[in-house]
């Protein structure tokens, strides 16, 4: 496996009867993801697609199945409760795709996570994919290919863009992780960079950041000290005006450090090759990974 998940993981889906699940689960299953159970309070005892058992509570599901990861696909008002229940059920990896969770709920979830056995990815994220093995999220399958590049991003669509540029140049990915666009979330950029750095299957790292917060600066600091693998990056929001929230709840320039220029400078100082705009991330990657010349799309 690369990081976090491989194809053997048994997956629980919270919100298995909802609209989001109806659209995304067939894509996850056809990618090879093993969905073993689902949660929908009030529909316990029924089956999803006449195959997958539905439970009222996570506790019942974990009693009956070996579960490595949970995918949460519920509306925002119920999402924090679902994450909390998954933590309570000691599910090792929790992926929450839901956008729009109140920040107060996420502050409480993060406090709860501290002494738990769980890792949270998201919320407000595309999820995680280990190409060729398992997909737990909403990313289009066709843009990925198995390989050795670790991709970590705060933005869903920019993860897709980055991965697609790599795949078009015949460069595969070890694991792609979207950590989410909310101001308070689970895994941080540094957490994922550290995992890629420790992962023998990952040879190079691509980091996609955006305005708001200081995670890119922290990642830069970590890379400078500990990372020997080549790192390429892009930071969105060079032209974003200050004090305006740019879609993501977390994408707002509110201090000297949260603007794109400061993040780019920190990354460059750490030896990271930063793409000037998103259309160049593939080429910048080729330059640092000695894979010259790259096939042009």
């Amino acid at each position: 496996m690369s990081i976090l998940l491989d194809g053997r993981a048994g997956v629980l889906v919270q919100g298995i009867t909802g609209r989001a699940a109806a659209f995304h689960l067939p894509h996850c299953e056809s990618y090879g993801t093993q969905i073993v159970a689902g949660i929908r309070p009030g529909k316990g005892g029924q089956f999803y697609d006449n195959r997958i058992p539905i439970y009222d509570t996570v506790a019942e599901a974990t009693k009956n199945h070996s579960i490595t990861a949970s995918l949460i696909l519920v509306p925002a008002p119920a999402a924090a409760d679902c994450i909390w229940e998954a933590i309570d059920g000691e599910i090792p990896i929790i992926v929450c795709v839901t956008e729009g969770i109140p920040i107060r709920d996420m502050a409480r979830v993060r406090a709860r996570l501290r002494d738990s056995r769980s890792i949270l990815i998201g919320a407000n994220c595309p999820g995680i994919i280990t190409p060729g093995e398992i997909k737990l999220g909403i990313m289009p399958s066709y843009i990925h290919r198995p390989g050795s590049v670790g991709v970590v991003s705060r933005s869903g669509t920019l993860t897709f863009e980055t991965v697609w540029q790599l795949t078009q140049r015949d460069i595969g990915q070890s694991t792609c992780v979207g950590i989410g666009g909310d101001p308070i979330h689970g895994l941080s950029l540094v957490d994922v960079v550290r995992m890629f750095n420790d992962d023998p299957k990952t040879t190079t790292i691509v980091l996609v950041g955006e305005i708001g917060g200081e995670e890119e600066e922290e990642a830069a600091e970590f890379i400078k000290k500990h990372v020997k693998k080549p790192v390429a990056a892009y930071v969105a929001g060079v032209t974003a005006p200050a004090d305006r929230r740019m879609g993501h709840a977390g994408a707002i320039i509110s201090g000297a450090k949260s603007g794109a220029a400061c993040k780019i400078k920190a990354l460059e100082t750490a030896g990271v090759a930063v793409a000037k705009d998103i259309s160049q991330i593939g080429d910048v990657f080729c330059e640092i990974s000695n894979k010259n010349p790259c096939a042009q799309p």
């Binding site: 956008e99 909403i138 991003s153 705060r154 933005s155 869903g156 669509t157 920019l158 993860t159 863009e161 666009g181 996609v208 955006e210 305005i211 892009y234 969105a236 929001g237 060079v238 032209t239 974003a240 305006r244 740019m246 879609g247 993501h248 994408a251 794109a260 000037k276 705009d277 998103i278 259309s279």
Partner: peptide, 27 residues
Amino acid sequence: GAGLAMATMDLLHANGLEAANFLDLGD
């Protein structure tokens, strides 16, 4: 997507064009 919306503004700017807006439909 918020990221793509911002990256699009940045891409235009890097090429001497300017966006009239940021617009994220959501996925």
